[in-house]
């Protein structure tokens, strides 16, 4: 599926060199700016399109990553996103050094949110972010330490 001479889009920030078995894109998510939140997901969507993935796979990856990106901007002051195209699956790793998630089980419930009110007026903060990320991926693991940060690993099979 993944030949070594893959085309790497030059407009993607810090696009890593292709390795024989996997292709990784890395992004910094700016935590200061709600308006720019989602830029990395848009770029990932473009990259996956150029790589010829089917629209449903692209949509699942980009929605899951987009919700994660919004979360990092709302809660954690930004972070990093890493998307790796592997044989048979696309892995998304979102890492931040934010406040962490005290109760993951509670955070996974639809409608539970700790987002401030001003975020709701922006169309988010309805407590759908993490559940949506789970909904659109085949695997999701949350690793979080209160006061240290959160790393979320997701996989979408194709």
């Amino acid at each position: 599926m993944m030949p070594a001479e893959l085309f790497i889009p030059t407009d993607s920030p810090e696009a890593a060199a292709p390795m024989a078995e996997a292709l990784t894109f890395r992004y910094d998510v700016d935590g200061e700016n709600f308006t720019s939140a989602g830029q990395a997901s848009v770029q990932v969507k473009k990259n996956l399109r150029q790589l010829g993935f089917d629209p449903e796979t692209i949509r699942r990856v980009s929605i899951a990553m987009y919700e994660g990106e919004i979360n990092m901007v709302i809660h954690a002051g930004g972070g990093t996103a890493e998307v790796t195209v592997e044989d048979g699956c696309i892995e998304i790793i979102l890492s931040d050094t934010g406040p962490g998630i005290a109760n993951i089980e509670q955070a996974m419930q639809e409608g539970f949110s700790t987002a401030p009110d001003n975020i709701r007026s922006l169309g988010f903060g309805a407590g759908m972010g993490l559940p949506n990320m789970k909904r659109y991926t085949d695997y999701m693991h949350i690793d979080s330490v209160v006061g240290e940060g959160t790393t979320i690993t997701m996989k979408v099979n194709y």
Binding site: F34, E67, L122, G123, F124, A126, M128
Partner: peptide, 25 residues
């Protein structure tokens, strides 16, 4: 007006009507 609801429940809808105005729409 809730973008997360759009992301959660919408499938193959081609048109979004909204009263929310920001880049995330």
């Amino acid at each position: 007006d809730m973008m997360s609801d759009v992301l959660a429940y919408v499938k193959d809808q081609a048109v979004l009507l909204t009263g929310l105005v920001n880049a995330q729409v």
